[in-house]
Design a protein around this nucleic acid. Structure first.
Lengths: 343, 343
DNA sequence: GGTCGCCCTGAAACCGGTTTCTGTGAGGCA
DNA sequence: TGCCTCACAGAAACCGGTTTCAGGGCGACC
């Protein structure tokens, strides 16, 4: 059995035909007589020929690949994003390139380099400079995920503000809570920034003074545990409720609170964001906001593929995917009126 | 400013030189006079020329890319794997392709297709058929991560058996516990299979009858909560300890136990595997096994790059990275003798 | 029987780079 | 002055495909 040494010309020689005929047969394009087709297929089969991707890509002027750019990777949220993107891409026979900038100084260069290896790129909001984003958009279709891009670069994001507004209002008005803490770093991502703003906005709407500063931590469960230590460990009066930027943090705070002997929601109300599978299963079940994480990147991939297939490379408009407030027990609601079983 | 329309020949024409000279200047190879270099650099700068990756890759006969194949993605373990691989790859100016087979029927084909787009592939153990693995190894260097490959395909894995043996022995002998449950699906991955085998092995070594069946669930926190429901929710006598296949499951079991009013470790001992950051921060802190997750894929990437750079494509041997038992409080130890601060 | 048209085939150009190979001019040395 | 060497530039081949274009052969129709 032959291997990657085989080329079109070699197969053509062995089959006694021209390279054009081999190409036509292997792609199923054009008209080829039965006799020719048989001879070519025989040679292909016998020598295990598979067309080289590079040659094909060069001739076609497209890479057959999509890029996905992250600041860094942590936890289930990001694996969901990757899977949403990957599923959509492989469905179109495109491979997926991943780049983590890790806030490296040469992040912009690396992203631009990626731009010359793929047919389009999805960039997580807040990952690279606006200038790099614009230059990137000058070479391939670009979509910003979970954030907004400069100029007319399209974006796909979740409705952070609407549900966070409703959630905070629910805590303040329906449960009559005061002194809520917000855990999450607004400077860390556009998502958290929007959630923090909506959290404060709900306070203002009701004429209540919001906290001035969030508990600025990262987005993992360990950070929630650290936040619990900070909020519950000292002598300072503990807040009545903790609104977390995502479920991972909330689960960390929950574990920290339970570990300190506190009752949730009696002693402390806790809410999250994302509606991860565990949110419905913990005791008490976690009040949170459901957002379609996989859909974010799946939609981005669709936008990119569409733009890449059109000659004009038109980027298309932006999308805001709906979110849903999921009331469970950790906020103080007794009978979950909706979404109790999680996704 | 020009864009991707620029080619070597166009730059050569504009600078009044040959394409060979442009290539030499842009790569810094060969001898070029100062005058020529200046003219070429001027044209490159003026028109924003960047050499096309496909053309370059085709000429060089290499893709400048590495592949990483997963069955699926879930949680922090996988993001660590990706980051370990990615860091090592970008250090060598290689891009990273990701493929999730999701146990699709055409997984083997997709992996082989990836084999023609990259210079080497790391495959998570148990992801594709042995036949596909061997065929893949016939086209590019391949390394199996967290598992063993057929034939002489190199692999990188952690010492699951050693530490799981020590951990189980610690529970059985030092804490004199009986009736331990194992949570995790041995059929799900080679890692879990090895851990389950070592768990049983420790029982046999001490002449104790191990459980016949594990609580076969997946590897996420939600699965740990389901396992807690199964183990603690019914009327059956609860086990004395729960040995979990990873920390995520263990955290789920912990939350489930705390939510049921149980005290850990007094009422129930719980152990994990991985030593995620949260393990050191929960109350009680989690006894677990530390394994160098990022190093697994980083080492795999190094092996692949080395093989890809050598003309003979020699695969090199296999590696077993050391693990470390981390005793904290959830097993019943009072003063953590080691590793109390997590990584 | 001649001409038109269709089906099929292969030579060659092309995608965008790198690299070899040839050749020219300048400078050094006898 | 003549010869040899060396530095440097460019033409062309090459990587492995796809696609255009021209032409040959054959059937159909007039």
């Amino acid at each position: 059995m032959g291997n990657s040494r085989m080329t079109v010309r070699e197969i053509a020689r062995l089959a006694g035909v021209s390279v054009a005929t081999v190409s036509r047969v292997s792609n199923g394009t054009g008209q080829v007589s039965e006799e020719m087709r048989r001879r070519v297929l025989e040679a292909i089969e016998k020598h295990g020929y598979r067309p080289d991707h590079l040659g094909r890509a060069l001739a076609a002027g497209r890479h057959g690949a999509l890029g996905l750019v992250f600041p860094g990777l942590s936890g289930p949220y990001f694996t969901e994003l990757i899977q949403g993107f990957e599923s959509e891409a492989v469905g179109s026979r495109a491979s997926v390139h991943i780049l983590c900038t890790h806030l490296r100084s040469d992040a912009d260069d690396q992203v631009l380099e990626m731009g010359r290896r793929v047919d389009g790129v999805a960039v997580m909001g807040g990952t690279i400079s606006e200038e790099a984003l614009l230059r990137l958009a000058g070479m391939v279709p670009v979509v910003v995920v979970a954030g907004k891009g400069p100029g007319d670069i399209p974006s796909v994001r979740a409705d952070n503000a609407g549900s966070m507004l409703a959630l905070t209002r629910h805590l303040l008005a329906d449960h009559d809570l005061r002194d809520l803490a917000f855990v999450g770093n607004p400077a860390g991502s556009p998502d958290v920034s929007e959630r923090w703003a909506a959290f404060r906005g709900a306070h203002h709407d009701l004429g209540i003074e919001p906290p001035n500063e969030p508990v600025a931590v990262s987005m993992q469960q360990a950070d929630g545990l650290l936040a619990a230590e900070q909020l519950l460990g000292g002598d300072a009066p503990r807040p009545a409720g903790v609104v977390c930027a995502n479920d991972e943090i909330a689960l960390g705070v929950l574990v920290g609170a339970l570990g300190r002997g506190l009752s949730v929601p009696q002693d402390l109300v806790i809410t999250g964001f994302d509606d991860v599978p565990a949110a419905a299963l913990v005791t008490p079940s976690l009040t949170t906001v459901r957002q379609p994480v996989r859909e974010l990147t799946a939609e981005a991939a669709r936008l990119i593929l569409r733009a890449a297939n059109q000659p004009g490379n038109t980027p298309a408009g932006s999308l805001v995917l709906p979110t849903e407030l999921v009331l469970r027990r950790s906020c103080g609601c007794s009978a979950p009126p909706t979404g109790g079983t999680g996704r």
